[in-house]
Nucleic acid binder design. Structure first.
Length: 522
DNA sequence: AAGGAGAGCAACCGCACGGCT
DNA sequence: TAGCCGTGCGGTTGCTCTCCT
């Protein structure tokens, strides 16, 4: 936007008075009484010319000299800003490209609100541009109750936050990406997820602006995040979570975040970080069990059991105490050297603390308000000593019968729904476990050795798929506009939409290409 | 057609930091 | 060493434009 005739944001009470519209190209603005009549407000083309001429002659710097030597009736600070943001050469104008948007996300995850630092890695972009872009995104996603970061970005952000107190935390991702891989010594590792109440959960600097006091746009009166909060939970020795950790029975505990049930996301398609998870039950008669388990069971547990008869496969079973008939299971290779479902940190979305089977205990914080979910605990145990089979059993125990019906509701709507298009994300409420399943599905597709299992998987998934109006663009599922499939209302640019789509596509590299993601892959 | 909401953008403000004296 | 000054950064404000109702 170019400067125009609009008034400027300086109050007359501050000693300004309107200049009128005499300036070419828009003019307007205010001057400061008693301060050499320094002009404020939008710059005119004439002023730009003066400034450019000055910089051409004298170079950048000595901005206070601009006013003295060029006759420009602006303070040096204003001149510097104008030059930096609009006049200097090689500035890119226009909307951010997909790569730039992605980079901004990554850089923000890495640096936080260090706009200048981010700008230094985005050639032609200014810190102000990046800041505005980011703030717009923040506002939009906050309004929609969506997480600020996509999964993969969020995990790197978490790594960033922690890397300042825990060197080489980056492997955290590795730890979680393949949580089973370390189990090679015949031990019986166990690890568990559990969600704490909000009062228990906040140990770290916030990762999301959602809580007002936790905004990434931190108040200038708050300590700058140069020294990030250490992990109060990081205590491999004394951590309660580590009490069950031993060499013979590796275990780790981390907390699940609250589901995203915040903003009234009505009539929204699958989108953005929520992603879409296919039900993976290979047994049609059990096709709701995955949903049950995914729908924030208050207590769920996983168990992995070794197998000799199926040395290369493990089964994964999910049960709910509501009904033992609600059992879902699937299998996957035990060795996991085929890039087990990318169970990344973000996909688990640990909210609080983590004890890895291999050592370090990290505490990470959910960006979600944990008051949106009842106490939830998932427990996974891995038994590598099992002699007959590699089995993974996941038991979901619903103690409070809260939230558990969300996915059933979704399934019902999905199966009967037709064009209602009620969002999976809206109904799912949570996506943490779903991401596990997403990862599993993705891995499943890419693993030729289990094609047979794949074939038996997708019935309930196909139900979901069928429930999604085929005419609905996938971008509407995944855009972070948060509104009904309307990119315009959200102000999303095509690039933004495409960017969000790419984010999602990256989550489903295989299936996405099969036709708009999993939802249409059946 | 008018009004409202939201997005995008430009620019200001206050503070922090570093260099210089 | 303290104070001054220039510069840079981050937060905020307020404007216009676009789209929707």
């Amino acid at each position: 936007m170019t400067p125009n005739n609009g008034s400027v944001s300086v109050l007359p009470s501050q000693g300004m008075f309107p200049l009128g519209s005499s300036g070419s190209g828009g003019g307007g603005g205010y001057v400061v009484e008693g301060n050499d009549c320094l002009k404020k407000g939008p710059w005119t083309a004439a002023e730009d010319q003066i400034l450019m001429e000055y910089v051409r002659k004298h170079g950048e710097g000595n901005w206070n000299e601009v006013q003295r030597n060029s006759g420009l009736n602006r303070c040096g600070k204003s001149g510097r800003l104008r030059w930096a943001n609009h006049l200097r050469p090689n500035l890119k104008k226009g909307s951010f490209s997909l790569e730039e948007q992605r980079l901004i996300l990554e850089l923000h995850a890495k640096y936080g609100n260090k706009w200048a630092r981010m700008a230094s890695q985005l050639p032609g972009r200014t810190d102000n541009e990046i800041k505005n872009h980011w703030n717009t995104r923040v506002k939009r996603r906050k309004r929609q109750g969506l997480p600020l970061y996509p999964h993969d970005i969020k995990q790197s952000q978490q790594s960033h936050f922690h890397s300042q107190t825990i060197p080489s935390l980056t492997p955290l991702t590795t730890i979680i990406q393949n949580p089973f891989q370390p189990i090679t010594d015949g031990s019986t590792p166990t690890f568990s997820f559990h969600t704490q109440s909000q009062t228990q959960a906040h140990h770290l600097p916030p990762l999301s602006p959602t809580p007002p006091s936790l905004s990434p746009l931190s108040s200038p009166h708050r300590p700058k995040p140069t020294a990030l909060t250490p992990f109060p939970h990081f205590d491999p020795i004394n951590s309660p979570s580590s009490s069950s950790f031993s060499s013979s029975t590796p275990s780790f505990t981390f907390h699940r975040p609250a589901p995203i049930l915040g903003a009234p996301l009505r009539h929204k398609m699958f989108r953005d970080s929520i992603g879409f998870s296919p039900p993976l039950s290979p047994n049609p008669e059990r096709n709701t069990s995955m949903f049950r388990t995914s729908s924030m069971p208050d207590i769920a547990s996983f168990q992995l059991t070794g197998s000799d008869s199926m040395p290369d496969m493990a089964s994964f079973q999910m049960t709910s105490t509501n009904s033992m008939s609600d059992i879902a299971c699937f299998e996957f290779p035990r060795t996991f050297n085929h890039s087990f479902p990318p169970l990344s940190l973000s996909q688990f979305d640990f909210s609080d603390s983590l004890v890895s089977p291999t050592g370090p205990v990290y505490s990470v914080q959910s960006e979600l308000s944990s008051n949106q979910v009842s106490q939830t605990q998932l427990k996974i145990s891995i038994d590598n000593n099992a002699s007959l089979r590699d089995a993974i059993t996941l038991a979901a125990t619903d103690e409070t019968h809260c939230n558990i019906s969300l996915l059933d509701e979704f399934l019902q709507e999905a199966c009967s729904g037709g064009n209602n298009s009620r969002s999976a994300t809206e109904l799912l409420g949570s996506f943490e476990e779903k991401h596990v399943l997403d990862g599993y599905g993705q891995w499943l597709k890419s693993t030729s050795s289990i094609d047979g299992h794949l074939n038996s998987m997708p019935e309930d998934f196909s139900k979901l798929s069928n429930s999604i109006p085929p005419s609905e663009p996938v971008s509407n599922w995944y855009s972070d506009s948060g509104e009904v499939s309307n990119a315009h209302s959200s102000g999303l640019t095509d690039a933004s939409l495409e960017f969000e789509m790419q984010q999602m596509a990256s989550m489903f590299p295989d299936v996405a290409t099969a036709g708009h993601g999993m939802a249409s892959s059946s």
